[in-house]
């Protein structure tokens, strides 16, 4: 595995990190923009995890935000009630959320495509109800406010301002590096094989159920880390932060950018994550715009913005040879993907 992790330290990725840090520093003067950027970074992290599930494996998990919620409430509970350090609480909550995610997902792992999405929708609904119902843990619809930001261990101070923004930037970048490593590993190849044809994947010796379970676990880790960071960054957690609409908007970032491409979800998150902030006065309009975008993307650009762009660029012969060496994603020729 180390070989694949090392392969993640590529010039492109380092460039991406530099760009992200520069962006965080540039906008740090304006707290509003800095906050939007912070949320965008968490969205990139979430989109990278959703991309592993939806883009590479072909599993549309609409319970993604719910799993993020389990981790968020877990982290907040351990920090605020038990007095744990964020850095101890977060991994525990994330692992717990991932285990719960896999357990809840177990019955649906034999399903594919539409049926998997449907069963994950049910799981999300149950989780959303759970967040409202277990008032003792979640404070119900009122939500938990005044959540302290992550502490900086051994210093007695907490992450705040640009420090927190940079932490989120780094977390987003780390999630991309991990996705890159997975996409270029045998595990990533198995996921693509499962997405393309489960029956054939089994016929060439790939354990479809085991690999689906693994990717579900890994994807839940992304969801969980994002959830813990989100709650502590915003300082507030309520069932609405982790509902079906949140799952859908993460899915939309992936689909909008380009499923199964490495950069697509990043592009999708960069474009879509700030939208709700721009439309703060028009809350209903936001949902309408999201709905319209979902339909537009499915009908007009099944490959996504970045995926479609990539398909055009690939037709240029000079770049073709270079890009053909980049694997993991599918050639996005605009063909409709059933997932």
């Amino acid at each position: 595995m180390r070989r694949y992790l090392r392969s993640a330290i590529t010039p492109q990725l380092l460039l991406l990190l530099a760009a992200a840090i520069a962006l965080a520093v540039v906008v740090s003067g304006n707290r509003f923009f800095a906050f939007v950027l912070g949320i965008t970074m968490i969205s990139i992290l979430w989109a990278a995890g959703m991309n592993l599930l939806t883009g590479y494996t072909g599993l549309v998990s609409l319970a993604f935000a719910g799993i993020a919620g389990i981790s968020a409430y877990g982290t907040v509970g351990l920090v605020m009630r038990c007095g744990w350090s964020f850095w101890l609480a977060m991994p525990v909550a994330v692992l717990g959320a991932a285990v719960v995610g896999v357990l809840l997902g177990l019955p649906s792992l034999r399903l594919k495509g539409f049926y998997f999405a449907l069963s994950s929708l049910v799981i999300q609904t149950v989780l959303s109800l759970g967040f409202v119902y277990f008032i003792g843990l979640t404070n119900g619809d009122t939500g938990i406010s005044q959540i302290p930001p992550p502490d900086i261990p051994l210093t007695g101070v907490s992450f705040h301002g640009i420090g927190f923004d940079l932490l989120l930037t780094f977390a987003a970048w780390l999630s991309l590096a991990a996705t890159w490593a997975i996409a270029h590993s045998p595990f990533g190849r198995r996921l693509v094989a499962i997405r393309e044809d489960e029956v054939l994947a089994e016929a060439i010796g790939i354990d479809v159920i085991r690999n689906k379970m693994l990717v579900f676990f890994v994807g839940s880790l992304y969801a969980g880390v994002g959830g813990a960071l989100y709650a502590t960054y915003v300082g507030f957690a309520s069932p609405r932060s982790f509902d079906l609409l949140s799952s859908l908007s993460i899915w939309l970032m992936v689909a909008f950018g380009g499923r199964g491409t490495f950069m697509g979800p990043v592009v999708g998150a960069l474009i879509l994550a700030p939208v709700p902030f721009m439309l703060q006065q028009y809350d209903t309009l936001k949902d309408v715009i999201y709905g319209a975008l979902i339909i537009a993307v499915i009908v007009l650009m099944p490959g996504g913005v970045y995926g479609t762009l990539l398909a055009y660029v690939r037709r240029l012969p000079s770049l073709k040879r270079y890009l053909s060496k980049q694997r993991g994603g599918v050639p996005n020729d605009g063909s409709v993907r059933r997932s």
């Binding site: 045998p186 190849r189 198995r190 393309e196 044809d197 054939l200």
Partner: peptide
């Protein structure tokens, strides 16, 4: 090993990727 009556390959992947995916088992 078996083949299928209606040919089954990873149609959207390259021939090379098809072969490399099939090699995963022995790589393991």
């Amino acid at each position: 090993a078996r083949t299928f009556q209606a040919v089954r390959i990873f149609a959207r992947l390259s021939v090379r990727d098809n072969l490399q995916t099939a090699m995963l088992v022995l790589d393991d």
